[in-house]
Computed example of a mutant assay.
Amino acid sequence: MKQVARFVTPAVIAAFTMGSMPAMAAPSAVVDGLVTTQQAVDADQAGADRERIAELLSRDEVRSQLEAQGVDPAEVEQRVAALSDEEVREMNARLDQMPAGANAVVGALFTVFIVLLVTDLLGLTDVFPFTR
């Protein structure tokens, strides 16, 4: 029994020691088939960007404008599907920079606020209590 323990004990100690060591890879090691966290996040973002463009293209007013310009909406959808992730990201950035109807609403509300403020300061209306 002692002879078996002499051979088993070092093996068990080595197994526990090796099992408790952290597994580390060299920073420059390239592993095929593994996806980094950044690549997964980029893929998710590209998918979200593609969904946003598809949602925009599915709107009736966008389709009618495309048809008015002589463009087939199905062809546009095919071309958007063929875009690379970088092109989709750039297209979404441009969509964010373009003027939209929301800007007009904010501008109209701001204009109404200024008109009411000026008329309140002139004493023609009594809307804002802080003008007195």
Rank of each mutant, 00 (worst) to 15 (best):
A82Q: 03
F110W: 09
L83G: 00
A48K: 14
D96Q: 13
D32F: 09
D42C: 02
A15I: 10
A81N: 03
G47C: 06
L124S: 10
V105S: 04
E51I: 15
R89S: 01
I114Y: 01
F7K: 12
N92T: 08
E51V: 15
G19R: 03
P73M: 11
V4N: 09
R89F: 04
V35S: 14
P22Q: 14
F16T: 07
V127A: 07
R94K: 15
V105P: 01
D42W: 03
F16E: 01
F7H: 13
T37D: 14
A43E: 05
T111Y: 06
F113L: 11
A81T: 02
P10K: 06
T9C: 05
R6Y: 11
V105A: 07
S84Q: 01
A40Q: 12
M98C: 00
R89V: 01
A40F: 11
V35D: 10
R50F: 12
D44H: 14
Q97K: 14
L57A: 04
P73Q: 12
G101R: 09
A29I: 13
T9Q: 06
A25M: 14
M18P: 02
E55M: 04
E67D: 04
M24W: 15
F110H: 10
E86G: 03
S20Q: 09
V76M: 04
R50V: 09
R59F: 03
A93R: 14
A25P: 01
L124D: 07
P22D: 13
A102C: 00
V41S: 02
A93S: 15
V8K: 06
S20D: 06
A5F: 14
A102M: 12
K2M: 07
V127K: 05
A48P: 01
A29M: 11
F128Y: 15
A54H: 10
D120W: 00
V35H: 10
K2A: 08
F128C: 09
L56Q: 12
D49L: 03
F16P: 01
F7Y: 13
M91G: 05
S84D: 03
P73G: 11
E87R: 09
A100H: 10
V30F: 08
R52L: 08
I53L: 08
L57V: 03
V35G: 08
V112L: 13
A26Y: 08
V76Q: 03
A93I: 09
T36N: 05
N103S: 13
L57T: 01
A93W: 10
A68W: 05
